[in-house]
């Protein structure tokens, strides 16, 4: 495996974000349903971060203190800002995005569309920052777990039915 033997797995919960430059860290967003995980990594400084976004747009609402990544727009802004403070550059940033599924079934997917709206909002916000994602795994009907390994910048996605594969 690419994670160091003494890897420390840090769970990034709903609406949370985490940044790290510790090579033993693996940042993980477990079970993304309609939520989307955004992994950012600067290969030069080996600084990385992961945000676990719940909803598309803040529409001027301030995210709660405990949930800096509740919304796509303010979540991405905060993630990039915190990464920059650790020395990461937006120009070098490798961004990978996974999630946005409709896990409550096809009938409800039409009704809710949260996953789809999250994906749109994230692409838009990244574009606003001049960033095009290097890889995406979005949509579908299955929940995903996304992790980023800080020592290598590699990201992996797994579902309940399939083992981890590199994104």
């Amino acid at each position: 495996m690419t994670a160091p033997a003494e890897a420390r797995r840090i769970s990034v919960g709903i609406g949370q974000l985490a940044i790290s430059k510790d090579p033993t860290d693996v940042l993980v967003a477990y079970g993304l349903g309609s939520c989307i995980g955004i992994s950012c990594y600067d290969p030069q400084t080996k600084v990385g971060g992961l945000a676990h976004v719940l909803l598309p747009n803040s529409e001027g609402k301030r995210p709660g203190e405990g949930e800096p990544a509740r919304f796509a727009d303010t979540g991405i802004d905060t993630l990039l800002k915190q990464l920059a403070a650790l020395g990461a550059s937006p120009r070098r940033m490798v961004v990978k995005v996974a999630g946005g599924a409709a896990v409550l079934g096809p009938a409800n997917a039409e009704k809710f569309k949260i996953g789809e709206r999250n994906a749109e909002a994230i692409k838009e916000r990244l574009k606003h920052h001049g960033i095009a994602p290097a890889a995406v795994d979005l949509g579908g009907t299955k929940g995903r777990t996304l992790e980023v390994h800080i020592n290598t910048g590699k990201t992996f996605v797994r579902t309940a039915a399939s083992p981890a594969s590199e994104l």
């Binding site: 079970g31 993304l32 349903g33 939520c35 409550l104 809710f112």
Partner: peptide, 18 residues
């Protein structure tokens, strides 16, 4: 439903909070 538990719970959270 047949999936990871939190993916399902989280999707309901999102629907309510939206």
């Amino acid at each position: 439903l047949h999936d990871m538990a939190i993916a399902l719970v989280q999707s309901v959270y999102a629907e309510v909070l939206s």
